[in-house]
Structures are given as C-alpha cells and as structure tokens.
C-alpha cells in the first residue's frame, strides 16, 4: 500500500515538473506569420489598425521587434515576447518614435534603442544620447560634484525607416558603475537619462511630427522607456 502511494506521488511530481518546464522554460516555437501578427495586434488593440508587417527582427530567442504600417499609413512598432509558452504582443505603438526596450531591467547590456520613423518626416539620421547633468551640492560643508556625462551615438536612416541598436559597451560600463553607487545611497539621485535628436539631410535639427503622439498599448510586463527629444542647445560641443 505504502509503496503504491510513493509511486503515484513520484509520477505526479515528474508530470508536474514536465508541465512547469514546458510552460515556463521550453524553447520558443516558430514565430507566427505576418498575417497572424496583424490579426493578433488588431484583436488586442483595435486602434492599431495594423496592415503591413515591414519586418520581424529577432533580438534574442524570446524577443522579437516587428515594425508595421497601419491602414492610415502610420509607421509603428510592435514588441513580441515569448512567455508562458506563447508568443504575446507585449506592447504596440502606432507611431515609431525611438524608445528604449529593456529586455532585462537590471542589465543595461540588454537595453536596445528601437525606432520606426515615418518617411514623411524626412529624417536622415538620429543622435542618441546618454546624459547625466553637471551639478554640485554643498550640504553641511560636505561638497559633492557631479561631472557631466554625455555620450552620443549616431545612426543613419538612409535605407530603412526602422531599426534597433544595442547600448554600446562604454555606456553599459558607465551605467553599471553608476547604478551600483546610486543603489547603495540612502537617497538615490537618478539623474541620468536617455535622449535623442533627429536630423534631416542638411544636418539641421527638425521635429518629427509624423512619428510622435501616437496611441499605445502595453500588457504591463514590458520594460519600455520613453526617450526625450533633447534640445540641441543642451548638447555640449567642445571642439
């Protein structure tokens, strides 16, 4: 009798672990077709009115970026994540202004700039920035000086309206050191931010009217950071 009970308990545990593994850890199945993507997006977020999937760009095994064009000819972005044994759309933006997608919130090397700029805006390049403003503090005679951090990266938009870019190594190095010091503080400052400046053919700063102020959907499980458009006057050009 006892033996029988042990047997069934053992089988139960094995079955349970197989199901748990299948549900949480198994390798993703093949990515849905473009028609399926469009249908799913319009189902969860009808305002998207998705019509054409421009591309599906796998970032890693479990994250795919799919830029799309809507029926109203807007250029948007959809974010797909493999979770609970299913490809889910984690977020949809009907306009493709740049955002920062954090695959793993605690690891800056998993952060990606993503964008899908409307060709009507005639933007030929984007400058991305990591900025920590210069500042000083004197509290009870103790002085503190924050050097300005300004790191930039230029991306050309000549061929495609969309794209993505991983944070570069030096950015990640700085952020890791910065985050460690800040999180050990009693009053963290969090004075570092990301921004962008769009440029046209003649390298003049312009405002990307057709790529901002869209509608967006999120399932609440995605790390997406909004990027400010930085004022050109704020950027320091020493040489």
């Amino acid at each position: 009798m006892m033996k029988k009970k042990l047997w069934s308990l053992g089988i139960f545990i094995i079955l349970l672990s197989i199901i748990v593994y299948w549900f949480y850890f198994s390798k993703p199945t093949s990515f849905p077709t473009n028609e399926q993507l469009v249908a799913e997006m319009n189902r969860v977020f009808p305002e998207a009115t998705a019509s054409i999937i421009q591309d599906t760009i796998p970032i890693d095994e479990r994250h795919v970026l799919a830029p799309f064009i809507s029926k109203g000819d807007d250029y948007g972005l959809s974010y797909w994540v493999w979770k609970n044994h299913k490809w889910k759309v984690a977020s949809i933006d009907t306009k493709g202004k740049p955002m920062l997608w954090k695959l793993n919130k605690s690891d800056p090397s998993s952060f990606y700039f993503v964008w899908n700029i409307d060709p009507k805006d005639q933007i030929s390049s984007i400058h991305f920035y990591l900025i920590r403003d210069r500042g000083y503090q004197i509290t009870r005679g103790i002085q503190h000086y924050n050097p300005k951090v300004q790191m930039g990266k230029r991306v050309s938009l000549q061929e495609k309206s969309y794209g993505l870019m991983q944070l570069s190594g030096t950015w990640v190095t700085f952020m890791n050191a910065y985050n460690k010091v800040e999180s050990a503080k009693q009053y963290p400052e969090r004075n570092m931010f990301f921004g962008w400046i769009p440029y046209d053919q003649k390298d003049m700063g312009i405002f990307p009217e057709n790529s901002v102020n869209g509608a967006s959907y999120s399932n609440g499980e995605i790390g997406l950071e909004y990027l400010m458009i930085v004022d050109k006057g704020q950027i320091e050009i020493p040489r």
Binding site: I138, Y145, Q150, E236
Partner: peptide, 19 residues
Amino acid sequence: SDQWYQETYMNTESNKRNE
C-alpha cells in the same frame, strides 16, 4: 564643487564647454 561648476560655465561661449 561650486568653483569647478562655475569655472566650467565662465568664459565659454554657448555650448562649447569642457568637462
């Protein structure tokens, strides 16, 4: 800190500042 900060903004035109 205050001296360093102010020196950075003194005698520099617009945004041609050195850190």
